[in-house]
Amino acid sequence: MVVGLAKYQNQQEAFPLDKKTLQNVALRSFLSGISFNSESSDSIGWLWAIQPALRKIHSDEEDCKLAMGHNLEHCSASSPLAPLAMGVVLSLEQQKCDLETIRSTRSIATYTCDAIGKMLVYYLFIPLLALSIIESARNGSIMAVAIYCVVLFLLQVILRFVSIQYGYKHGMRAIEKLQKNAGTLKKSMMIAGSFMLGAILVALGSGYAMQIAMSQDNSSIPTIAKLLPGVLTVVMGLLLHYLLVKKNFSMGKCVIVVVLVSFIIALVQNII
């Protein structure tokens, strides 16, 4: 199994990545959201985007496989600011940090960038831009729509190409200072990562109430989902963790458990 608790064999710091490789990663990030899946979110796209950089960083074949394996774990990479997280993670990979440090940083960085990127684009720029051109569009102005399209696309391009350079540069600077106490850093990042994982479970579960509301009948939302959003995903996360660690369940078996539970919940809701 590639993913796990192994360490990089070659602990020596790699050569810094050149601008061209980082731009290649930023370009690939445009396609990182296409393989979105329910289990690991954008992990396939994330790995595909940073693959050229990982190959440059890890000259050791086994280390490269290990890096590719752990970068297939759950992460979110569909926002226009995802390259910022990619830059930070690549700076950690370049410094050959512990896998636990990289995992925790990736979980925090990807979700933070996702939240900031989407709030910036979808809650700020799009409403502002849409409201300012919508009247012209109603009056039949194609030019207004073209401007809307070009501005949104340019915004994405700028955010992606600038943020990867920024993330990598500042990630390198920070990690060079912090890496002196690698053991302490690993412990602190594991604490931050554990905190974040609990929170992500709740936040993802909060979508449960929203999904049920898709039936356009808000009264059908169970009270427990209203009071404790995400309680179901937390319970499910702990159950799956138990099955993986204690019962040595395979991923396939875990997927079957989730599918069965989901269909049972949907059926019960349908009957009620």
Binding site: E73, R103, L197, L204, L240, M251, C254, V258, F263
Partner: peptide, 28 residues
């Protein structure tokens, strides 16, 4: 509708597996 709902619930619950794997690998 209930089948759509089931897939929507899968969409909400299945990320728990991804997080559970991270929990295992981070020794939560």
């Amino acid at each position: 509708g209930w089948i759509f709902n089931a897939f929507a619930i899968i969409g909400v619950l299945l990320p728990s597996l991804g997080i559970a794997v991270l929990m295992r690998n981070l020794s939560v």
